[in-house]
Every structure is written in structure tokens, then in C-alpha cells.
Computed example of a mutant assay.
Amino acid sequence: MKNVIVFFILMLAFEVNSQSFEGKLEYLVSTEILGDTLVQNISKNKLIEKLKSQGEIPIDTLTYIYSAKGDFVSISKYGSIDIISNFIKKNNLLYTFIGDLNIVSAIDVTIDLEEKLGNPPSVKKINEKEKIGDLECYIVEVKWKTGIYRYYFSDSILKIDPELFKDYNYDQFYAFLRISNALPIKIEKLTNNFFKSTYLLHSYTPQKIDKVIFSIPKMREDRTMSNMYINKKIFIIK
């Protein structure tokens, strides 16, 4: 952890003149089961494995690449399968590509599903702080009916313009950024009586990003499948 914090300090020198962070972040990911009960007669461990296989839970590491204009890509792996999520700001969709599959799901990030269903979450900066290495981090807690996210941030690194994400209500990301004005150092995701995932920043590199990384293939929407979801669209790669 000391090496990580030294790396943070060195990188800070390159970031101070940047209005909004552009570059690469790598998070270490861990997931733990909360309790050992069954869910609809299926063990939680089997459900976790299923979620991992679908790309819902990243394995070991998760890499984010941010542009200065608000687009980003996240990259993880399940075995040898690449799982890539691509946020295109101009249409507010977060596309997820899994390996060689030609079916692509795209989350409409303007929608917080629980809020849409009449259960708006609470978002607040809580009083306690936590030291992560040598960084003193503040915490923003988002509490939904079905779970809790805790975003940890520092006011000294990873500064970002929250207005780049003003329509990003999914995971209450914009609400968090309005408080933090910075990307998270750590994220804890707790699903009630199910599992807890922790994302801990391992390294980051401010750098100019080639916009070609945010390009997506030609696709057509499958409206029949899209109509099955409130907050998703389904596309077929041509």
C-alpha cells in the first residue's frame, strides 16, 4: 500500500494542471458472500459464480479509461473472456460487450431503477473518514432499498468535473460526483443479505487518451428484447 501511495503522490504532479482527470485507473476487486443461506433454493456461491460468468461482478481487477470529455471504458476478465463496458456520453448508454458474443446490452444511465420504481435512494456525505494508505478519504453513502454503496474519495487526487456526468443517475454516480468532485479511491457495494464487493484503487496514470478506444461497432437494436427492460436496450452487432 505504501508503494501505491507513493505512486499517487508522483502522479499528482502531472495532474494538478488538468481540469478533469483523463487517463487510466486500475482497481483491485474482491467479493465476499454475506452468510450461507439459500436464495430461491440456490446457494449464494452458485449465484455469485453465475453473476461473474455474466460479467456482473469483475474478477480480480477492473480497469477504467476516462476521457476528458466524460466518456469511459471499463475492462475486466472472466477467465479468458474480455468484458468491456463502454459509456458513450452523447447517448447516455453504457454498452457491455462480452467476449465474442454479438448480443450487446446497454444500460440507460439516466435511470436509477429503484427510483424509477418509486423507491428513491438517499445520498449523503457521512461524518466518518477512513485512511487508505496515507490518504484521508471522505465517504459518500448511497442507500437503496436493496443495498448500499459507499464511495470513498480524496480531495487531493483524481479531480473531475461532475457536470460531465450530469445525466448519469445509474448507481447515483452523478450525485456522488457533485459531492466529491473526484473519482473514487474505493467503492464498497453491499447487496442486502447477499454479497459485498470492494473496489480498491491500485494505480492510476494521467495520460492523453486516443478517442478511438471509445468507438463501438455497428449495431441494430432488437426492440422486442429491449421492451422487456425498463432501463436497458439490447443490440445485435451487424
Rank of each mutant, 00 (worst) to 15 (best):
P58T: 01
I81F: 12
K116I: 06
K50V: 03
K116V: 06
V104Y: 10
S43M: 08
L47T: 05
N92K: 12
S67W: 10
N92L: 05
I75T: 11
G35F: 07
Q40S: 10
I33Q: 11
T63G: 03
E49R: 08
I59S: 13
S85D: 07
Y66F: 15
I84P: 02
L93D: 00
V73G: 00
D36L: 13
I107N: 00
G79A: 11
F87K: 03
N86V: 13
L34P: 03
L93Q: 07
P58W: 05
L34C: 00
V104W: 06
K44L: 06
D108F: 01
I88L: 13
Q40W: 09
T31Y: 04
I107V: 08
I48P: 06
S80H: 09
L38I: 04
S67R: 05
Y64L: 09
D108H: 00
I48M: 10
G70E: 02
K69L: 10
I65K: 02
E115W: 08
L47W: 05
S43R: 12
N102K: 15
I33K: 10
Q40T: 00
I81D: 02
I33M: 12
V39C: 11
Q40L: 12
D71M: 08
V109I: 06
I83V: 14
D60S: 14
N91A: 08
T63E: 14
L38N: 11
E115D: 13
V104S: 02
N92V: 01
T110Q: 15
I81T: 15
